[in-house]
Design a protein around this nucleic acid. Structure first.
Lengths: 359, 359
DNA sequence: CAATTTCATGTAATCCATTACATTGCATTG
DNA sequence: CAATGCAATGTAATGGATTACATGAAATTG
């Protein structure tokens, strides 16, 4: 069932080496433009940077030449001089993760609107790679870093670190962060399950190294307390945010003979895994077990049943992070901020009132 | 159900402007390192670039100073001099698309392994943005472009364009491309449906502007011909690769009263949409209708039923594209190649033998 | 031992645009 | 009309590294 596979062929047809066609169009420099337009390089630069301070006649002349020769100023030279690259590193563990890819989209949008570009910093959770990207800032190849992990990369420069934290947050009060109130959001989700009559609510946590996971767990605990439900520690398991982790968590609970009528998961992937594992054990969602996820990734509404989940404002998180970054770069004196966006519970088909009788 | 929202406060507590703490650690330059290590700047540069040509004593001395002062060479200055940025733009319509995000991951991996970084060029299919990223190459802010669309961005430089095409392909024989044989791959999928006894096979096509979509449709047509099945044009509809498009396509077919026992979709999202629409009409997959997708995105195996689909080697496509790009940058003389990777049909639960009797 | 390499290092040009400072000419003002 | 200001443009310094070319010393060769 494999559909062929061929190597590229060797030498191209006319593989002679045409030595860059004698086409008159080499790479241009200000100097050439200046010479042709009969002005100094300074004037060319000014005509391009701040046209209003150049007389109309010269300006038009220069622009004509620039256009005719297709001149584009060398960004490297400019950046070296101005000490700004207009590049921002977006540091994230995994670009294929649907949550992060939505966030990065928000980042990209605001970046584009402001003349910045985004450098992809996929770390695969490796500290080495994280550091490698942080070093790009030190090497002045990027102006700042938006990190989606809970670590603040060490950048050996002094003064204000050009770092903004998104989704996750760090204790460091010098670092601006955007995130949601995970304790509250998780609480809302669990409140809802309780309202549906569930009392034995399992929790699939994320890696405890990340503060947001701790918060979500705390939200879960607090919600139970509010409802005067004694939390059963055996109902809490830890996963790594993968679909498989969700499956394993359910397998574990079932194999231990735990009794529960609902599961709250720290992210949607684990919820999807959980739903799969449940149905493969003949348990129906939501009739037998209700499932709630977290994030509201693109596919959450297309699972069957559609997943009830806490919707993070993914795009807004990204947009806001980039906005803060630009603010910070424009004025290193602006005080760091911790910005909290709101998250909403989206009720879909994976949750239902607790069945009158059942484990 | 909303969880708070707060603005940052105005002036910071000690908002005086501390004039970059007297901490002795400013940004360093070769000059300083050279002065401290009592050598010339050339020697420092050499000690860092090609340590082997510097005597051991000096090398160690320089490295010691570099380390002690935490010196990182200014990448902008280096890039300006060497005319290389080691940055590659990855041009794609949508980073949140799970197919592309896997490809870009492959790109990122090879880039990282070779000391390159990836600049995210999300275009939202806008020509303006596509051009904006292409211009970054002209401005020497990036070394090349890997495009995942079927257009070749216009870069006003001469000689070999530093462009590689991934997933899609362009006619231009001067541009290297990596892709799968879409005609064959689609054919394999449809052959399989035919083998299961299906004869009325609907096809949900993608945007005809893209060559790969044309190819997939052709593969579908050819497979029918091979089986001597007269293609029913009414069974082919066009979508835009979105889940909603898949739903709409099915709605349309059903409302027209078309009869079919299988649907082949040009991508997985549309297949997911199709499955939803089918089941919302009380049609069971695969008992009543078989569904086949294309791409094998991460979630394909987690739909219910799990989706039978043509698995594109997403990571390999990305890796290969970046590999070609590096080759091309290292030697602009290497002839352009068209590299075809193999794709395999992955049979899961959304396909079954045609029911003995049924529309 | 003189002649020739080789090795290690230094000097200075170079990459290309930005911009501080200098200059020129003209208009305004008292 | 001299003095002053401003507008337009030019000259040259600057950003920070890389590297071609130059130099001196040590090693090799005949």
């Amino acid at each position: 069932m494999s559909t062929a596979g061929s190597k590229g062929k060797g030498q191209g047809a006319k593989g002679k080496r045409l030595k860059a066609a004698p086409q008159q169009s080499r790479v241009r420099t200000v100097k050439e433009i200046a010479a042709i337009a009969k002005v100094s390089v300074a004037t060319v630069s000014r005509a391009l940077q701040r046209p209003e301070i150049v007389s109309e006649a010269t300006r038009l002349r220069i622009h004509e030449v620039v256009k005719r020769l297709g001149y584009t100023p060398n960004a490297l030279a400019r950046n070296l001089r101005t000490a700004r690259t207009r590049l921002i590193v977006a540091l994230l563990p995994d670009i294929a993760n649907p949550f992060f890819s939505e966030v990065i989209r928000g980042i990209e949008q605001v970046a584009y609107e402001n003349g910045y570009s985004v450098l992809l910093g996929e770390t695969q959770s490796s500290l080495v790679r994280e550091q490698a990207y942080a070093d790009m800032v030190a090497a002045r190849q990027a102006d700042g870093i938006i990190t989606m992990s809970h670590r603040v990369p060490a950048i050996p420069i002094d003064g204000r670190l050009p770092v903004v934290n998104a989704c996750e947050y760090v204790k460091d009060s010098e670092i601006s962060s955007v995130y949601i109130d995970n304790v509250a959001a998780a609480g809302v989700a669990v409140d809802y399950l309780i309202m549906l009559g569930h009392r034995d609510i399992a929790f699939i946590a994320g890696p405890p190294s990340s503060p947001i996971c701790v918060d979500r767990e705390q939200g879960y605990q607090l919600a139970l307390q509010r409802a005067k439900i004694r939390a059963n520690p055996a109902l809490t398991t830890v996963g790594d945010f993968s679909i498989e982790a969700g499956e394993r968590a359910i397998e574990l609970l079932l194999s231990q003979g735990q009794s529960f009528s609902a599961v709250f998961c720290s992210n949607d992937e684990m919820a999807i895994g959980a739903m799969r594992a449940l149905s493969s054990h003949g348990l129906r969602v939501p009739e037998d077990i209700s499932v709630v996820g977290f994030d509201d990734i693109r596919f959450a509404r297309y699972t069957s049943p559609p997943l009830t989940t806490v919707a993070q404002p993914k795009n807004a998180l990204g947009r806001e992070a980039m906005t803060m970054m630009i603010e910070l770069l424009n004025d290193p004196e602006v005080p760091p901020r911790k910005r909290v966006l709101s998250a909403d519970l989206v009720v879909r088909g994976s949750t239902a009132a607790r069945a009158s009788k059942r484990g």
